[in-house]
Design a protein around this nucleic acid. Sequence first.
DNA 1: AATGAATGAGCCTTCATTCAT
DNA 2: AATGAATGAAGGCTCATTCAT
Lengths: 222, 222, 222, 222
Amino acid sequence: MQKNMIQDKVLTTKEKILQRAQALFAQNGYDGLRMDALAQEAKVNKATIYYYFKDKQSLYETIMCGVAEAFYAQVEHNMMGIKGDKARLSVFIDSGLDFVQTHRDIAKIMMVELSFEWKNVTPKTEAKFLPILQRLHEILDSGIQNGCFKMINPILLHSVLIGGFNYYLLIKNIYKRFEQKEHNETGHNETEEMEQKMTIPFSDGKEEIKAMILGYVVKDEK
Amino acid sequence: MQKNMIQDKVLTTKEKILQRAQALFAQNGYDGLRMDALAQEAKVNKATIYYYFKDKQSLYETIMCGVAEAFYAQVEHNMMGIKGDKARLSVFIDSGLDFVQTHRDIAKIMMVELSFEWKNVTPKTEAKFLPILQRLHEILDSGIQNGCFKMINPILLHSVLIGGFNYYLLIKNIYKRFEQKEHNETGHNETEEMEQKMTIPFSDGKEEIKAMILGYVVKDEK
Amino acid sequence: MQKNMIQDKVLTTKEKILQRAQALFAQNGYDGLRMDALAQEAKVNKATIYYYFKDKQSLYETIMCGVAEAFYAQVEHNMMGIKGDKARLSVFIDSGLDFVQTHRDIAKIMMVELSFEWKNVTPKTEAKFLPILQRLHEILDSGIQNGCFKMINPILLHSVLIGGFNYYLLIKNIYKRFEQKEHNETGHNETEEMEQKMTIPFSDGKEEIKAMILGYVVKDEK
Amino acid sequence: MQKNMIQDKVLTTKEKILQRAQALFAQNGYDGLRMDALAQEAKVNKATIYYYFKDKQSLYETIMCGVAEAFYAQVEHNMMGIKGDKARLSVFIDSGLDFVQTHRDIAKIMMVELSFEWKNVTPKTEAKFLPILQRLHEILDSGIQNGCFKMINPILLHSVLIGGFNYYLLIKNIYKRFEQKEHNETGHNETEEMEQKMTIPFSDGKEEIKAMILGYVVKDEK
DNA sequence: AATGAATGAGCCTTCATTCAT
DNA sequence: AATGAATGAAGGCTCATTCAT
């Protein structure tokens, strides 16, 4: 998080390139990233990028694989030693929400890649994502089979968790812009509903989503 | 669905361009769409596109505005005459889910645009989206104020509804690919979990999401 | 030949590009030709080249195919109606020598391509050269079989004819340079051998080569 | 011939570079040789090349000078002690043919350089070639003056000798390819002329060329 | 209304070369 | 003696856009 600032000088050239590339891919997408811009941002010569990475696609692949591994590692780490389906589901949900919140660049890249139907994802990268999906399934399936979870399509749960939350974080940004603009433009005659918006501050969102999911999935215990 | 084939000849040149542009923007994003490719797909000369649209940005804007208007119109139409907070919420959720499901291209474009922080959205387009968001707020706020809905951040609900469902539809595609590949590669000795996947067919998803949201929002009436 | 000067304005853009490309390929080889330089020489925008030709390779291919066709057409035309093995061989030799002398660019390109073992020659181009070689064989083989020609490897004859003469034209250029330099540097005390050089002016060369070949191939008739 | 394998370890780094460079220049020409590729082939770091050679041009020059010296040395060696114009011409022709046949790389490089009008040849290199040409002239001129040789342009003789034979060796390669392809494609129904080709095997070529030249140059003695 | 031809700007990539070690 | 890292300067090619018709 704050590594960038503190360790900026410590990063190797390759790491510097990867770091900036991730940010730029997230901002502009695969086609939108310009190698010139990346070189400038990473403060290296354009040719230096090609010293470390075969081409743009390979740079992207490196990032995507890193993403997959990072996500998998975090979930694995968090789940370690957790027993009981409900506890495991709870930890899993928290892990997912945290990852999406902490790794904004990655979440965005994934979202876009998903929208483009995995267009720029190579088989190698795809293979890295498989274990993650399998792991999610194991967890959810176990709960369903043990009877403490309602029968639910695991993918759907996953979607609400990751897709819903990521969308929330994204739209919050846009929303704030709307409000600022309106505020500037309308002067003081805000409508009541706009007042209303202000009274419901942007919540963290994680707890609500978790509650929404658990409320649906976990069977009432009597 | 089969409109393309039947009406292909009926479409004006301008409509043909817009139709193909929407599909290509959805597939490749703003930067990914090539005017050459569009001309080819629309079976017109490249210069013809510029006869109808000032430039690429203007073409995109036209589509985005159309998107916003279409969404707003559908919601308005569906809500017409519906009374009662719960009923209105129900219809609203259905409208949202239907729209996302029916207008895949638009949903994808919006998702990507959101990820890129509205990068290619002009003020004019932005203005078109405002009424939609306002309408959603009215509906949700009313229910909250009337006490039949739990206090919830409307944006969060919106996110689970639109973001969660769109994500579900997207990942379903990728998922099916994974399964096909694995099926091809592993031959016949699928593990049990893979069997399991098969037993939970890809549900429509709409009902679950609706239930999940309503379960969280609607207060139990005693 | 003098078309360039007279018809320069009449050439289509595509022809202009091809014409200049041929000259530049001859001067610098495939790798040595710079698309920028070509654009400048042809007085068109660089992108215009790509409007007419897919890429550098395709441009080269177009020229090579043209070359092959031009050569074949000229030989065919000259041979038309010629009867008798000796007469045909004579006409064939003249055609070859004339072609090499008239189409200097082409001869150079072919020579280089041969040296690089056909490196930049695509199958399509290769196919165009086949008929030429076959035609040469027919002619020579017939003479050999009819007994008026000495048994000779046709390829060898071809080599002396084309390779020897082309080499002669090339080295004449270099030779002249040597002499000029020496003349400038040595002042007036030229050695006798240098005087000698001057007394044997650069002959056309065609007649000598033709005589050399015929002297070897044609059997003395008694 | 098999020197490469046996002496590979014995070569100094500099020699290794020169050896591989010569081969690569012959294959791809000056512009076609990539310093990266050379480094890889010579199994040294790219910077190592620059440790031994100022730049690409200087590397090329070193090779070209070596070429000239080698050629000159061989001719000088072979001619040593040979008396009589005809004998000397005979030895000279043999030397030339042998050199062209033995030093394929060099012959190719020279051929290409000639085609490009000595483009990459520096004055220093040019100076090395002068003695060779002078020596050839001496030999030929002497024979002409002594009356045992027909009056002939020495350069033309040189061209047929070197140019014709080198061309023959080059085109033999391409020719064999044609035949292989045709053989593969036509199956077993070769036409008669194809049969014919097979019956005239690729001769060495040296004797024919020598005979062709001598037949033309040497005056019949009665 | 529509298009073939042409282009300026810029993109990804490569190349010969240098630097610090 | 030798090299991993880095680079300035192109090089081939593409893109959105315009022009003349």
